[in-house]
Design a binder for these strands. Sequence first.
DNA 1: TTAAATATTTAGACAAAACTAAATAATCTT
DNA 2: AAGATTATTTAGTTTTGTCTAAATATTTAA
Lengths: 217, 217
Amino acid sequence: MTLAEENYLKAIYHLENQSSNEVSTNALAEEMQTKASSVTDMIKKLAEKNMVSYIPYQGVTLSKKGHAHAVKVVRKHRLWEVFLLEKLNFSWDEVHDVAEQLEHIKSEKLTDKLDEFLDFPKVDPHGDPIPDKYGNFETIDKTSLTDAQEGLVYVCVGVHDSSSDFLKYLDANHIGLGTTMKIIHKEPFDNSVKIKFDDVELVVSENVAKNLFLKTV
Amino acid sequence: MTLAEENYLKAIYHLENQSSNEVSTNALAEEMQTKASSVTDMIKKLAEKNMVSYIPYQGVTLSKKGHAHAVKVVRKHRLWEVFLLEKLNFSWDEVHDVAEQLEHIKSEKLTDKLDEFLDFPKVDPHGDPIPDKYGNFETIDKTSLTDAQEGLVYVCVGVHDSSSDFLKYLDANHIGLGTTMKIIHKEPFDNSVKIKFDDVELVVSENVAKNLFLKTV
DNA sequence: TTAAATATTTAGACAAAACTAAATAATCTT
DNA sequence: AAGATTATTTAGTTTTGTCTAAATATTTAA
């Protein structure tokens, strides 16, 4: 698997997790920041290699083989994120980009030794589960802040968007994994949400709310 | 700089260090395991980018810019080797191949944080010096075992060939960095050398002797 | 249910990095 | 110094992954 092929597999994997039906060429082009025609080309190649199953005009799905490979890349990505944060003192908004490179290093031994060195972490710095060497991981049950109920108390267990900008926003507002918050008010007009934590009230936009994952406490 | 370009720079760097005069197209082709015509193509490209200076039929030399870049790649390679050996418990014959991949990760912050995490090591597991973040490193004065003098005592400070096969040979014969040995006899017929260490005598071939670096003790 | 809009695929090109085969330059022999 | 050998470069292809533009299929809307 080349770097480009792995990135496509990963993108298909993420899109499958978001909406559970077939992945369209256009969605994939959007995700990969490329053109639909390029996507068609690559999908054909991946289909040749039995990594995806593809019916023209109907989108792609990962094959068993492709799924397994995507999970391996995701495992590496998340392990490196933990390494960068815990061992090299990167901040959580810095880990993603470097992990995008490190996830393509090919050495099963490296991956497994790294896993051991980090003491077999279960989640990465954004709250996403880390597959073990067999590809198994615990699914974390989480609710988006947009779906949280007024009056209840939640703890933050993850983020959807792991872009540097979003994570810096959270840092600036002292929100992180483990932050416990109460839903004060959900504003129907613009879907913003007023939350309270550490004795401070904060109104966050719908965009922020959509990207924050919570668990009831 | 692409991966291929970086590998060429590194190869030119190594060849310059070995013989101090211009690097020939053929030597580079041999080092890169490729064809002379491919080398000419790439050299032209690197000359365009001012990474090397190139006169047709006369070989290449690294420019200041190319040299600095090569040193950065070497720095990353050697730091990762230390990481793999010391933190992930790889053996010294396993570190090279994985480091060949890791050396291309682009993040100055990663490199410098890794350096710090490893406590600023001065040499890698094969005895080669590690450049600091400014590209400076201590040159280690060393003699090849072929040039060592009968009767004198030396300590092993490095290896020339860092191939897995050679390092495994050394492991099997209990030779490593720091091994102190006495030169018992140099056989003129085949340039083999009889050495003694840990109260055992061992005859090594010219090929082995050439690749072992020693320092007088 | 046909026209318009949108999504997808095909065809043809391009850049990077390699290759083979042929041409040319440099060096070595005698 | 001419011919032979060796080293190097040039010319023309190939593969990978991308692109644009054109063609085709699908969906939406009147």
